[in-house]
């Protein structure tokens, strides 16, 4: 019985600083939505408002259509995963996971059974008796997740859940957390500044900038059809090519680097969105090759990301090249 979350015109200010300027967001039951933004965008503030750890100046938050604004965090039936995990250092793994059950006065038998279920769910079935201090970073995160889910909360809130993990473990846990979230079917709001994490884990991404939502949509939508220049450059890399139509006022084309290929034969006919310029830098990145080009007309930096390798001899710095757009129909035009 997953629960929908409705956020309505939430405003928060710390003194003169407006951190959230009226945010609306509706999250469907069982959906995982990621709040993505740079530091200071207000994403963590919004999560804390949903949790009740912070009081909004105005606006409302509702779970399943019922306002939770006047409920304390402990009465909202949420699971919160902290960036630092906030495991209780004086309790064992099992005692940590059992804590929310104890707070709800479940009997000892239920506590033991549910705790074991939760530890099995996160693949730590054998670790119940261990001290928190003996666990690795990844194990701590699993315990924290098991604890957050133990009391069958209505909503799961993740605050920069992967920030304390190294890159390899982070990728593994992104998939793992997503699996568990799907298995449990719990409505989830996650906060991150890592766009790859947002793309990997989310049903939808909500991009925040300076306290305002600038775009909400599936990862594909946000990447392929960014709402504005900010989203275009924030989510992945983008070449913003100005268009001039006959009237003189054109839009801006968003051409992703992988949609450009590099040609040294300038005599060939130019396609749409193509540009000429001189090579600035070529760098090899394993599966792909990145070519930076200074545009002839605007002097701006354009980037192409080419699959495989390129002819390095023809791409010495200063060499004249043309960037040709591979799939013009995938180019999104901002007006």
């Amino acid at each position: 019985m997953a629960v929908g979350v409705d956020i309505w015109q939430v405003k928060v200010a710390f003194g003169a600083l407006e951190v959230l300027k009226g945010v609306d967001l509706n999250i469907a039951p069982g959906e995982l939505v990621t709040l993505l933004g740079a530091s200071g965008s207000g994403k963590s503030t919004l999560l804390n408002v949903v949790a009740g750890l912070l009081q909004a100046d105005s606006g409302d938050v509702a779970f399943d259509g019922r306002s939770v604004q006047d409920l304390a965090p402990r009465d909202r039936n949420i699971g919160f995963l902290f960036q630092s995990y906030a495991l209780f250092p004086h309790l064992t793994v099992a005692e940590n996971v059992a804590f929310p059950l104890r707070a709800r006065h479940r009997d000892k038998k239920t506590q033991g059974r549910v705790t074991q279920q939760m530890l099995d769910l996160v693949h730590l079935g054998e670790a119940g008796g261990r001290k928190v201090s003996t666990l690795s970073g990844g194990q701590r995160q699993r315990v924290a997740l098991a604890r957050a889910l133990a009391a069958e909360p209505a909503v799961l809130l993740l605050d920069e859940p992967m920030a304390a993990l190294d890159k390899h473990l982070r990728e593994e846990m992104q998939v793992e957390v997503r699996r568990i979230q799907r298995d449990v079917g719990i409505t989830t709001i996650s906060v991150t500044h890592d766009q790859t994490e947002a793309m990997t884990m989310s049903d939808r991404i909500a991009i925040l900038r300076e306290g305002t939502l600038v775009q909400v949509g599936s990862p594909e939508e946000c990447y392929m059809r960014p709402a504005d220049r900010f989203v275009a450059t924030f989510l992945g890399e983008a070449n913003l090519v100005p268009l001039t139509d006959r009237a003189g006022s054109g839009g801006t084309a968003v051409v992703r680097p992988e949609n450009y290929t590099v040609e040294t034969n300038l005599a060939a006919p130019a396609g749409p969105y193509s540009a000429t310029g001189t090579v600035r830098l070529v760098s090899y990145q394993g599966a792909r090759c990145r070519v930076e080009v200074t545009a002839e007309t605007t002097g701006e930096l354009l980037v192409a990301s080419v699959a495989g390798t390129v002819d390095r001899a023809g791409l010495a710095p200063g060499a004249p090249v043309r960037l040709r757009c591979l799939e013009p129909d995938k180019v999104h035009v901002l007006t």
């Binding site: 309505w8 015109q9 009081q55 409302d60 259509g65 604004q69 006047d70």
Partner: peptide, 17 residues
């Protein structure tokens, strides 16, 4: 949604702790 009773809600929260 309970946007109307803002004053009451705020009071309830302030009184909680």
């Amino acid at each position: 949604m309970a946007g109307a009773d803002k004053g009451v809600v705020a009071k309830a929260q302030a009184g909680r702790g």
